[in-house]
Amino acid sequence: MSWINDVVRPKIKSLLNKREVPENLWIKDPESGELVFLRDLEANHYVVPNSGYHMRMSAPKRLAHFFDAGRYETIPLPEVAIDPLKFRDERRYTDRLKDARTKTGLQDAVLVGAGFVEGVPLVAAVQDFDFMGGSLGMAAGEAVIAGMEAALQRQQPFVMFAASGGARMQEGILSLMQLPRTTAGVIALREAKLPYIVVLTNPTTGGVTASYAMLGDIQIAEPGALIGFAGPRVIEQTIREKLPEGFQRSEYLHAHGMVDMVVPRHELRPTIARLCALLGPKAEAAPESQRAISVVA
């Protein structure tokens, strides 16, 4: 019995009491290589404390950080046809969609919410780069348009957080058709004299920059974001010249008049609230008790 008491039982207890340690407790800064504790990063709005590098944020976390007290109403989005072209390359498109939905918890790349920012009512849409690179397909296009229509119905400003690798190739021409459709939505906002503010995050490229992402009344960029149509490597290979230092980054575009301002993430809320209050329809700020419509986890 001594062998059972001394060896077997302790091993069983150690297996039962073994604690699972999450693998992502530490995040590596892409610029400096510094390891940052995940909780510290979350508390700092996913901005690396020492280097100031702006990490990507998921759409739900972006909306929770953006709206007052993290409370907002989720705007319902229309359903679209799944895999209308029956596309398949190395894998079926439906399988890629299933994996992306499991990974992000989203139905597609764009999430739309309405609420208050510094007491100013507005509608905001966020592209999630983790969902197939934030690519613009029919569902994402319909989501952007649904957000614009909600802003029109409520007579509120519309804020777009763009992050995308471009059009979704698995949907072909149906994806490209979202460019003029979303542009028509921007025109409708302009005709209604409602502010349309775009926040360009890292990265914003491809067809998205050929449509709604570069049509804002005010163009804001987060620090260090890659913004452009084609990537720097493709441009260098095409023109066979070395590009300037910092080409297609937020600061370079601001210096050359392509964006209106570069705003750190911690200053986005007061900056956008001030712009919306200045440019939007005159309305009294809601009292604190009425600012939240629903809580989203």
Score class of each variant (00 low, 15 high):
E79G: 14
G141L: 10
L174H: 06
A124M: 10
D128G: 05
L35M: 14
A125R: 09
M261K: 15
V198Q: 08
G141K: 12
R9M: 13
G206A: 06
G231P: 01
G113W: 01
E42Y: 10
S51C: 07
I82M: 13
T205P: 00
E236H: 02
F129S: 02
D40G: 13
A163V: 08
M214V: 07
G280S: 08
D108R: 13
I82E: 15
D130L: 15
G113I: 04
Q178K: 08
T205C: 02
Q290C: 11
T94S: 14
P223Y: 05
P195I: 00
A167H: 04
H254E: 13
S250M: 10
S51Q: 12
T209Q: 13
E251C: 09
G137W: 07
I239L: 10
A255S: 15
G115R: 09
P22Y: 02
V123M: 03
G119F: 01
A210D: 11
V199D: 05
E31K: 13
A150N: 07
R88T: 15
L268Y: 01
I220A: 04
D83V: 15
V259W: 00
R9A: 05
P180S: 12
Y72T: 12
A283H: 08
D89L: 11
A225M: 04
L176W: 00
V234P: 00
I4Q: 06
G119D: 05
D128F: 02
G70Q: 09
V295N: 09
V208C: 00
P203Q: 05
A292P: 05
H256V: 04
F161M: 11
E118K: 09
F158C: 03
L174D: 00
P60W: 11
A139N: 01
H256Q: 07
R168G: 00
Q156R: 12
L38I: 12
P78C: 07
L174A: 03
G172H: 06
A255V: 03
D89W: 06
G172E: 13
R96H: 10
A221Q: 06
R19H: 08
T183A: 12
I145Y: 01
N5W: 03
P157W: 04
L77V: 04
